[in-house]
């Protein structure tokens, strides 16, 4: 058996989390609260060492120039507004950084979505048909084309549907379910791998009973 304290702590916490598979219990609850506590601690440390010290503190006390210091102070103050709800009368001020965050994300996403997703994926669908050199490639391209079309029709929410659109939409559902099946299969690989990793840790690193 391992003589390292860290291995023992990790092994006991792993078993405590596994105990949830039997039923909810006090040991699991302890492990759950340890995770929440450690997670919060890590978050505070990360904020301190990756944002507050290098960006805010150094940005103000040792700036590249006056302009960069001014920007740092301005955006730090905007960030501080997130804490406005602690003073009920000033709670509305938190909406300013919230609005900036949402606007920034939306502005950043739209051109990227057009450039990196809409155009290349439309092009890929078109090229699939245009460049198909073999019977198999033609079938492949047609499957992609029918799948793309029918799923787009399925997600049309405000279009009144007749029999034809309903039929196309139902084909879209079939494609969605096939896609979900593929995701599910991959997820099984993922989950099994994590479990195998844990078992290797418990029986290998902790108990030393696995062949090397």
């Amino acid at each position: 058996m391992s003589t390292e304290l860290s291995v023992w702590v990790a092994a006991i916490l792993s078993l405590a989390m596994f105990s949830f598979l039997y039923r909810e219990n006090a040991v699991y609850r302890v492990a759950e609260h340890v995770m929440v506590g450690v997670g919060t601690g890590v978050t505070v440390l990360l904020a301190l060492y990756f944002v507050l010290i290098p960006v805010v503190w150094k940005g103000i006390t040792a700036p590249k120039d006056a302009t960069s210091a001014a920007w740092t102070i301005l955006f730090t103050l905007l960030g501080v507004l997130f804490m406005a709800p602690f003073v009920p009368r000033l709670g509305w001020l938190a909406r300013i950084p919230c609005g900036i965050a949402i606007g920034y994300a939306a502005g950043q996403t739209l051109p990227a979505a057009i450039q990196a997703r809409l155009f290349p994926q439309a092009l890929s669908t078109i090229q699939g048909v245009g460049d198909a050199g073999s019977a198999w490639a033609v079938i492949n391209a047609l499957v992609v084309l029918v799948g793309t079309t029918s799923v787009l029709v399925y997600f049309m929410m405000t279009v009144r549907r007749g029999a034809a659109l309903n039929a196309v939409s139902r084909v879209g559902v079939v494609f969605l379910m096939l896609g979900f099946g593929a995701v599910y299969g991959n997820m099984v690989i993922s989950r099994f791998t994590i479990l195998i990793g844990r078992l290797q840790f418990l029986f290998g690193e902790w108990f030393h009973i696995l062949p090397t």
Binding site: A116, P120, Q121, L123, S124, G128, V144, G179, A182, V183, N186, M187, V188, I189, S190, R191, T193
Partner: peptide, 26 residues
């Protein structure tokens, strides 16, 4: 990619935006 997210990457592989892809443990 992990198995959980790999399916979403295949369209990018097909379009050539991603050159190669390692699918989970396999």
């Amino acid at each position: 990619a992990t198995g959980a997210i790999v399916t979403g990457q295949y369209p990018y592989l097909a379009s050539g935006q991603i050159t190669g892809l390692l699918r989970s443990t396999r």
